[in-house]
């Protein structure tokens, strides 16, 4: 499923990022395929905020659908 469907406060493992540009950017920022991340916030109709260690990224809702994850 897309990370847009993970409830706020829970963690998920990024399995695949179906967007070449985003995959490259996220890998550089440390949110690569295989990483465990926490969903910190879901801004209504807006971006999803992910956190790993002490670092956060915000990704637009559309893009978040293409970040596929599994939850434990």
């Amino acid at each position: 499923m897309g990370i847009d469907r993970v409830p706020v406060g829970s963690s998920a493992r990024i399995e695949a990022i179906d967007d070449a540009t985003a995959r490259r950017e996220l890998t550089r920022l440390g949110f690569e395929e295989g990483a465990d991340v926490e969903v910190v916030s879901r801004i209504p109709f807006g971006p999803i905020v992910l956190q790993r260690r002490h670092r956060q990224v915000a990704i637009g809702r559309e893009l978040a659908r293409r970040v596929r994850v599994t939850t434990p």
Binding site: P47, R55, Q56, A58, L63
Partner: peptide, 10 residues
């Protein structure tokens, strides 16, 4: 338009 992907520094 390109989707948002932005680092949020602490």
């Amino acid at each position: 338009s390109t989707p948002l992907l932005i680092e949020l520094p602490p």
